[in-house]
Design a protein around this nucleic acid. Structure first.
Length: 373
RNA sequence: GUGACCAUAGUGUAGCCUGGUAGCAUUGAAGCCUGUGGAGCUUUAGGGGCGGGUUCAAAUCCCGCUGGCCACC
């Protein structure tokens, strides 16, 4: 369920309504593959005003097992997080040789990176896993080729398979859901593929929209494609899909790309970008990127971001945080993760507010200027 | 005092026996990171204590000095 509340240009303010509650869009989800944002707790998430996270159905199926999570009452009860939760299908893992063995029209053969055991996952099976886990929003099992070392005809083949599987996901999901009460239903999003080829991408989205999903994701991007092409795919998808459905740009989490995508009608984002960058010393600030590991900050008494009012900026100096990161102290990773996610939460908040106030373009200009070059 | 061992990049080390481009880790510098395998990748900078000998050629073999370390007295 989605309600479009307001628009400013193509930027949208909306509400995503799930069985665990309603959250305002646009929003960003930190990645919690194994039911935990790395170095972060659900208490921290609540404190910074985070409203949604995404975990990974395939990884959870391997450990601790979807049936185990079902016994524990589903994700929501198990981790006691106040926000809503998405699960990714595991399609993204096809990008990783550590997981993928082969795919066929029937499904995908994965190996467990934990113990090497093999698992054949069909679209139907994937839906069952995600329903056992009982996330608020499930994702279709898609086929994600690495478009850097793959020819166009292989991307076309991925689109074909993705559509085929989307159909089977939807049918099986409907069947499983039919037994549930209306206020207890899991949402299901389709995922488009097609790399950065407009014709393939358009074909993919068009086919998906016929299946009537609760939302539509742009998949397969955030892999080093030119920013222009990424933006083009968002524009294209927004144009083809229904306006009263949310557009989820998967895997994108840099401030500039988020605001560019919002300006083209994207509503939902997720990425490891802010958390991974934090751990590696790249900090988001009101003055642009801060490279914390530079020696120039060895004695730096300033906070990470002088204009930030997060607990970390109010408490610690760059010098101390730099030292902790250099020492690879777990606590240091946590502190910088806190700031980067806090920064992104505030950005999303400002985006929503600016759509309300009709000042989105001004905000976009400010963010682009901040991260110029 | 006597004897043994050691001395290589900021730091920690490999090579030495069987002379011939000095390798690795970390640190420094720059960049990358986007539906996360618990912290990665790429590029780059920086070196054989001092003096002498042997040799076409010495981090490598020999002598002395200096410094360290251990044992004994």
């Amino acid at each position: 369920m989605f309600k479009l509340v307001k628009k400013n240009g193509k930027a949208r303010l909306g509400q995503l309504i799930t069985k665990s509650g309603t959250v305002e869009t646009p929003f960003f989800m930190p990645v919690a593959t194994k039911l935990s944002v790395k170095q972060f707790s659900t208490l921290d998430l609540k404190e910074i005003g985070n409203t949604a996270i995404i975990s990974n159905a395939f990884v959870l199926y391997l450990r601790p097992g979807d049936k185990m999570i079902k016994k524990l009452g589903g994700i929501k009860k198990m981790i006691n997080y106040s926000g809503i939760n998405f699960t990714d299908s595991g399609g993204f893992q096809m990008y990783s040789k550590a997981f993928l063995i082969s795919t066929s029209d029937e499904g995908v053969l994965f190996k467990s990176p934990f113990d090497g055991t093999r698992h054949f996952v069909t679209p139907e099976k994937d839906m069952e896993i995600q329903l056992n886990i009982n996330s608020d929003v499930a994702m279709c099992l898609d086929v994600m080729p690495n478009f850097h070392d793959v020819k166009k005809d292989e991307i076309e083949e991925a689109v074909r398979k993705t559509t085929l599987w989307a159909k089977r996901c939807k049918q099986h999901h409907d069947k499983l859901q039919s037994k549930l009460k209306p206020n207890n239903k899991q949402l299901l999003f389709g995922i488009s593929q097609g790399g950065i080829h407009p014709d393939l991408r358009k074909k993919s989205i068009t086919q998906l929209t016929k299946l009537d999903f609760d939302g539509y994701s742009v998949g397969g991007l955030g892999m080093g494609e030119p920013k222009k092409d990424q933006a083009k795919m968002v524009t294209l998808q927004r144009k083809v899909m229904p306006e009263d459905k949310p557009l989820y740009l998967m895997g994108i989490g840099s401030p500039v790309e988020i605001i560019e995508a919002v300006s083209r009608g994207a509503d939902i984002f997720d990425s490891r970008f802010p958390t991974q960058n934090a751990r590696r010393g790249t900090i988001f600030t009101s003055e642009g990127l801060l490279r914390l590991k530079r020696k120039a900050h060895e004695l730096d008494q300033l906070p990470l971001d002088p204009n930030c009012d997060c607990l970390i900026c109010k408490t610690y100096t760059r010098a101390y945080l730099r030292y902790l990161i250099m020492q690879k102290e777990g606590n240091g990773y946590r502190l910088v993760t806190y700031h980067n996610l806090y920064y992104l939460m505030r950005l999303m908040e400002r985006i929503r507010q600016s759509v309300k106030d009709k000042t989105f373009s001004k905000l976009k200009k400010e963010i682009l200027k901040t991260y110029k070059e």
